[in-house]
Design a protein around this nucleic acid. Structure first.
Lengths: 201, 201
DNA sequence: CACCATGTGTACCGAGCGGTAGACTGGGCC
DNA sequence: GGCCCAGTCTACCGCTCGGTACACATGGTG
């Protein structure tokens, strides 16, 4: 599907580039609100090309989201790679807030705007988004577990509770960003939140 | 529209009761994902009754959401009516988490599942939801301002930042609840968050 | 008890949905 | 340079969408 075959007319578009355009439409309008016409028009290709390449609207979404999520997860892992849990959490929240308010993409987060609640036939969309968010939360929790091992957080820290807290906060920031909150407004919320992380630097 | 006229065939349903059923459908499937067939079937009335009573799908949503939001806002105000900011914030987060995981209604929150991102023609839906959330955040901030006046919070507290932090957290909890998080899991996150509120009880 | 304003039920509207058939296009390979 | 085959294009499919026309049911009022 993705490898260019030796024979035949070559594809006139870059698969990953059009996935990014598709992600943007899903991001702005949600899965149910993103029509095939809006998608093909944003992607610059027409329906048969879309269907022969991606198979269906749902598979297109899964591909677009997977690409989006891998990129975000890489950013998250990079942010978490700080010497202390405090610095790691702060970096994660800041990087997240930056992404939520970056000017070159829709405000907020595809994992949430994509379809927290979907039409009855599209429940799988909500599931794949929830799985993505759970993956990010797991990365957070893993970093906190490491901090406990390293003596950077107290032995009795509820790391899954703390990871859930940090994740929930960044999800809430996504909701705020989708409604127009600025980077500075999110930063004020982060400053408050950082009081909650045990062991200041 | 709402007052029963003296003459003519009487209405066979209770207007506010069917609004609650409608809210549940919007809540589960979002505005775009809630079809008129699903709505009428859940409400137990048929299309012409719905249209003569409420006017359109969008007006139905606005009425259903207004009812939902007024009720939640009353709960919020009641929870915030505690002697200290600490107790008020904690009560708000707990009442919120209870509502997000109550068994007799869909998990999560209509203000968020209803339509963070909508089809291009339905942008007004996202706006009315955002306005509702902003109203809740304003109630929080007002309570914190009172706490500063009463000397319960330090003079230099960033009350809007703190209100935004608390609101964002409860929005994140809504996202978690929509994905199946339990009341206990949200409670662990609340316990973490409460470290961030200045002046313990 | 006939009237009549209103609510309810069926059956339908045009539009747009997600998805596809089939003719045409164009570049690598012998 | 002619063949081949994947990609692209136009035009269309059946279906469901949000919304409505119109005939019938209902019950208080004179």
């Amino acid at each position: 599907m993705s490898a260019t075959p030796a024979v035949g007319r070559p594809r006139a578009f870059d698969e990953e580039a059009v996935l990014d355009r598709a992600a943007e439409v899903f991001w702005r309008h949600g899965y149910d609100g993103a029509s095939l016409s809006a998608l093909t028009s944003a992607m610059g290709i027409n329906r048969p090309s879309l269907y022969s390449t991606f198979g269906s609207k749902e598979q297109l979404f899964r591909r677009a989201f997977a690409r989006y999520h891998e990129e975000k997860l890489a950013d998250t892992r990079a942010a978490l790679d700080r010497p202390t849990a405090y610095a790691a959490v702060r970096a994660y929240l800041c990087v997240s807030a930056d992404g939520l308010t970056a000017g070159n993409q829709p405000p907020g987060c595809l994992s949430i705007q994509g379809g927290l609640a979907c039409a009855p036939g599209n429940a799988g969309i909500s599931d794949v988004l929830a799985a993505g968010r759970a993956g990010t939360e797991a990365a957070l929790e893993e970093r906190l577990a490491r901090a406990v091992r390293e003596g950077d957080l107290p032995e009795d820290t509820d790391i899954s509770g703390l990871a859930r807290f940090v994740m929930a906060l960044s999800e809430g920031h996504a909701v705020h960003a989708a409604a127009g909150a600025s980077r500075e407004e999110l930063q004020a919320s982060i400053d408050m939140a950082m009081r909650a992380v045990p062991l200041r630097p």
